[in-house]
């Protein structure tokens, strides 16, 4: 952690709002990108961003400099993303139960159960759309590992640090996620 980060944190801990603001501006672009890549939605990314930095503001007073501020921040971001995903799933489940069936929210799995047929999909033209829908079917932890690896270019070790688990677990998340995605996307490419 750079000295300037330390100084900014210490000042922010004393109630210096400008220091907190500088700290936010230094890292918030990456936080928003992480949220956007995880949820693939600007609105959801905004919500996650707000939640992350409010948690940071509340927790900054007890920050003890035992880890990099960035690591701490991205851990919070990963946690908020996973919690957000779980909440949305519950919300969607309730929506389905009460009959609200927003087509845009229908998962890829709901639309295409089982094997896909090649001629059912427009090959290549909307691959991105299918990937995103397939991503939606992954459990939050697998999805988080997947997005950090493929969209944010983190190394497995760094992902393990952010998600606070060992590298073996992250590898397992990634293999399982990749294989599931492969199954879902079979015949589209």
């Amino acid at each position: 952690m750079s000295l300037s980060d330390n100084q900014l944190i210490q000042n922010a801990q004393k109630g210096d709002m400008a220091a907190f603001e500088r700290l936010v501006y230094k890292y918030d672009r990456h936080v928003l990108n992480m949220a956007k890549s995880f949820r693939n939605s600007d609105d959801d990314a905004k919500d996650i961003y707000q939640e992350v930095f409010i948690r940071v503001y509340r927790g900054l007073k007890s920050f003890q400099f035992k880890s990099e501020f960035s690591t701490w921040l991205y851990r919070i971001t990963a946690n908020v993303c996973i919690t957000y995903q779980n909440k949305r799933k519950q919300h969607d489940s309730i929506d389905r139960e009460i009959g609200i069936n927003d087509e845009d929210r229908t998962t890829f799995a709901d639309q295409l159960p089982g094997e896909l047929r090649t001629d059912d999909s427009a090959v290549g033209s909307d691959l991105s759309k299918h990937i995103n829908r397939a991503l939606e079917t992954l459990p939050p932890q697998q999805k988080m590992a997947f997005t950090l690896k493929y969209y944010q270019d983190y190394k497995i070790k760094e992902i393990a640090d952010i998600m606070q688990c060992n590298e073996g677990t992250i590898k397992r998340y990634l293999f399982t996620a990749t294989n599931r995605m492969r199954e879902r996307l079979k015949g589209i490419r």
């Binding site: 990937i131 969209y151 492969r182």
Partner: peptide
């Protein structure tokens, strides 16, 4: 598939 994933990276905010 790997290339498809990496090329599907969401646009920068």
């Amino acid at each position: 598939m790997h290339e498809a994933f990496t090329s599907n990276r969401p646009a920068e905010i």
